[in-house]
Design a protein around this nucleic acid. Structure first.
Length: 449
RNA sequence: GGCCCUAUCGUCUAAUGGUUAGGACGUUGCCCUCUCACGGCAAAAAUCGGGAUUCGAAUUCCCGUAGGGUCACCA
């Protein structure tokens, strides 16, 4: 049985690179009927924090990446296990205790444990890159533990992978050079060698390893920005992998069904926010209305609810208009905060010039159109934007669409750019539509004459 | 610098010896259109360079070049 692992170090937020590695381990294991285990690599006491472990666990779960060990393995709790293997290795002569100056606290003398390097050439087969050979001589007698009770990363990884039955190690390309060290330790301990697969890195626009200085790298930040977990998963999967078909939008299940390690790339992939946003829109489009409404309300700026005409019915009518444009919930929030949707919940105010438009339509024309529209709309079918459109389209077409529709839209929304007048009228309802036409007439047309 | 990895449109990628080098994002143009969007159609846009093998190379090999990763008593 295939067993993969996801071994984050809880020294920071859940990095999208970590999430991507976790995803590939998950997809590889699940697509082969195997398992994935989670291990917290918290041996660095100074930098590891429980909050980070919690954020990583929650973030991965939010994305739908779960693991098969009930209890998370924590390296900080396995000191005795490492000590046992250390002592065993020293007994066999594979490691030795070395008395030297401490690098951690200079001036002190400590007894570190070093590997007795056999100085050989090691070749391992990488599932993605083929055979890779290193001469380990340059590694020297590497330190594997600060003391018998304080094993270091390479040692703990090797011991835990062995004890947890890990068969396949899928990790970032930045670990390639770590592999020969770990193989040396495995061989010193008499362990078997797992299969390795080094994934291409996620790159920033400048093609260097994506890091904090390039902007948002934490999964949490994208979740907050309103990216859907399914979209994050989808986009991450496409960075370095593709199914060999033109399909680009996937559910998690489709990913599991189609994932093949042979289709994983060798070269790094630049993280492209634009494409990510587009992917998110595709997933947004696949939500049903109730799901979308719930999502929208979670990201809705509170200020809108304080507007005088705010009610849920209008929000529901506004939803399709928002939905057709928004690529992320952050877009919606931004537009809402810029006042683009205020018209739905309060009477707009605007300049007469805006009402007249670029062509500086005579106010007498606007008065004539509005008088007609008022009487027509007071009897029109308001059950849908299309019905409203049907009621006034012929008139607008005859009189000049721009001449009729532009001032109508401005009277209803007060904005240079807004949803179309049919949707706008539908959102605010018949009474409010008539009222706003009246307002336009008294405030702008009559005053201006 | 040593070691290691990589190299197809700006970006993500398809094509595993024979294609007008395909698709997607983005960009540009056109259509739709009262505005902003959405949508539809179209266009521009790539095999890093040089050798070798071969009837034939994006694809195999070699040499360059470029980019990246890594060189801890961090993980």
């Amino acid at each position: 049985m295939i067993v993969t692992r996801i071994p984050p170090s809880p020294t920071g937020h859940l990095h999208i690179g970590t999430a991507r590695t976790a995803l590939f381990n998950y997809l590889f294991a699940k697509s082969q009927g195997g398992k994935m285990v989670f291990r917290s690599e918290d041996t660095d006491k100074a930098r590891s924090r429980p909050e980070y472990e919690e954020e990583i666990v929650n973030g991965l779960r939010a994305l739908g990446i779960d693991w098969d060990n009930e209890e998370i393995t924590r390296q900080s709790e396995r000191g005795p296990v490492y000590r046992r293997y250390l002592e065993e290795g020293i007994g066999k002569g594979a490691f030795y205790v070395s008395r030297e100056d401490s690098k951690q606290s200079p001036g002190e003398t400590v007894e570190v444990v070093r590997l007795k390097n056999p100085n050989k050439s090691i070749t391992f087969t990488d599932l993605i890159r083929g055979d890779i050979t290193f001469d380990t001589t340059e590694l020297g007698d590497l330190v594997v533990a600060r003391s018998l009770d304080d094993a270091l990363y390479h040692f703990t990884v090797v011991v835990d992978d062995q004890e947890m039955g890990v068969t396949h190690v899928l990790r970032g390309e930045d670990h390639i050079s770590n592999t020969p060290r770990q193989i040396l330790i495995q061989e010193a301990l008499g362990f078997s060698r797992p299969v390795y697969a080094h994934l291409p890195l996620i790159l920033a626009a400048d093609r260097s390893k994506l890091s904090k200085r390039h902007g948002a790298v934490a999964v949490e930040e994208y979740l907050k920005e309103g990216f859907l977990p399914a979209a994050i998963l989808n986009y991450l999967a496409l960075l370095g992998w593709n199914p060999g078909t033109d399909q680009e939008i996937f559910t998690k299940e489709e990913l599991v069904a189609q994932f093949k390690i042979e289709n994983v790339h060798k070269s790094g992939a630049v993280f492209d926010k634009q494409k990510f946003r587009w992917i998110n829109k595709q997933h947004l489009d696949r939500l049903d209305t109730a799901e979308y409404a719930a999502l929208l309300r979670r990201h809705w700026p509170e200020r809108l609810a304080t507007l005088p005409q705010y009610n849920e019915e209008r929000v529901d009518r506004l939803l399709p208009v928002i939905r057709e444009r928004a690529e992320t919930m952050a877009d919606v929030r931004q537009w809402a905060e810029a006042g683009e949707y205020d018209f739905a919940f309060q009477t707009p105010s605007y300049a007469t010039d805006l009402l007249r438009g670029k062509n500086e339509a005579p106010l007498t024309d606007i008065e004539r159109h509005f008088t007609y529209l008022k009487s027509t709309l007071s009897e029109a079918d308001f059950s849908s934007p299309d019905a409203i459109k049907a009621a006034i389209w012929d008139y607008a077409d005859r009189e000049g669409r721009g001449a009729v529709l532009w001032p109508l839209r401005v009277a209803l929304t007060g904005r240079e750019r807004s949803p179309d007048p049919f949707n706008s009228a539908y959102i605010i309802g018949r009474d409010e539509t008539i009222k706003r036409l009246d307002d336009a007439l008294t405030t702008h047309v009559k005053m201006g004459q």
